[in-house]
Amino acid sequence: MTTCYVFDLDGTLTKQELLPLVATTLDLEEEIRVLTRLTISGQIPFRESFRLRFAILKAAPVDLVQKAIANVDLDNTILDFIRARTERCFVITGNLDAWIEPILPRLGCKVFTSTSLREGTHVKDLQYIMHKADKVQALRSKFKRIVAVGDGNNDIPMFEQADIGIAYGGIHPAATGLMQISDYVINESNSLCRLLNTL
């Protein structure tokens, strides 16, 4: 048990971005579009962006958000890789535990998320906003080598702590900043898994 693999969720394991799905369901497309643009262009850091996202979405009942994303397409090629070594694979996502709850069992491995306090049908407060470097550091005590796969700017801290970083552009090109600190850039899940299998 020397090597482990950590994966981002949105846009890496999911074949659609989750946030636009939620936005469409809740009729908040314009608000989310502006926020997404500012975040992707790096004008606001993930932490602030996530607080805003929470502020926008917390008015909606949790089950409505869950319903919007429950049936999202996942990349089965990568999931097969994960299922073949569940003890050494981890998903590290900035997304909120309550919102992505229905997807978790489909991923087949341990998932680290941002966490929330729930009150009845709604999320009341943010408890922990994911900082991906923390989780990679925590895995250090158990694994000698850590391979990270992600597509966005919030994966940069995860790549900085990992031994090998793979920028993955499965549904859109990976963020430029992430590419610049990555070891590999890949745009297709078969070749991603081919590489992972040889590492």
């Binding site: 552009g169 090109p173 590419m179 610049q180 990555s182 070891d183 590999y184 850039v185 890949i186 745009n187 297709e188 078969n190 070749s191 081919r194 590489l195």
Partner: peptide
């Protein structure tokens, strides 16, 4: 990368900064 990805999507790019 952009040119190559249009020709063959499954290429693995290895960065040499």
């Amino acid at each position: 990368m952009e040119t190559i990805s249009k020709i063959r999507k499954d290429v693995i790019f290895v960065r040499n900064p």
